[in-house]
Simulated assay, not measured.
Amino acid sequence: MMSPLGTLVTAIRGYIRHPDPRVAAANAVAVLVASNQPFYPLYLFWLVGSDITPAWFTFLSTPFFLAVPAVSRWNGTAGRALLPLAGIGNTVLSAWLFGTASAVEIFLIPCGLLALLLFRPQERLAGFLLTALAFGAYLLLHDAYGPPMATYGANEYAALARLNVMSASALTAFVAVLFSNLLADAEHSAETSRGKKTG
Results as ranks from 00 to 15, higher is better:
M1F: 04
M1L: 09
S3L: 07
L8E: 03
V9S: 04
V9P: 07
T10A: 15
T10N: 07
A11R: 12
Y15N: 05
R17Y: 08
H18P: 09
P21V: 14
V23F: 04
A24G: 07
A24I: 05
A25R: 15
A25F: 00
A26V: 06
A26D: 02
A28Q: 03
V29K: 01
V33A: 00
V33E: 00
S35Q: 05
F39L: 13
Y40A: 12
P41T: 03
P41F: 12
P41H: 11
Y43V: 13
L44M: 11
L44Y: 09
G49K: 10
D51E: 12
D51C: 00
I52L: 08
I52D: 06
A55Y: 12
F65G: 04
V68C: 03
P69Q: 01
V71W: 02
W74N: 00
W74P: 04
N75D: 15
T77M: 11
T77P: 00
G79Y: 04
R80C: 12
L85T: 15
L85H: 01
G87D: 03
G87V: 13
G87R: 03
L93N: 06
W96H: 13
L97K: 02
F98Y: 14
T100N: 10
A101Q: 14
S102V: 09
S102R: 06
I106E: 10
F107A: 15
I109A: 14
C111A: 15
G112A: 14
L113V: 15
L116D: 03
L116S: 11
L117R: 09
L118M: 06
F119Q: 04
R120C: 06
R120P: 09
R124T: 06
L125H: 03
L125V: 13
L125F: 01
G127R: 07
G127C: 05
F128V: 06
F128K: 01
L133E: 15
L133D: 08
A134N: 12
F135T: 01
G136W: 02
G136Q: 08
A137Q: 02
Y138W: 14
L141I: 06
D143S: 13
Y145D: 07
Y145L: 13
Y145V: 09
P148K: 08
T151C: 02
T151K: 11
G153Q: 01
G153P: 09
A154S: 11
N155P: 07
A158T: 11
A161T: 08
N164C: 07
M166C: 14
S167L: 10
A168R: 11
A168I: 11
L171K: 05
T172P: 12
V175E: 05
V175G: 02
S180K: 15
N181G: 08
N181R: 14
L182P: 02
L182R: 15
D185M: 05
A186S: 14
A186D: 15
H188T: 15
H188C: 08
A190H: 10
T192P: 01
T192M: 13
K196P: 00
K197W: 12
K197G: 05
G199M: 00
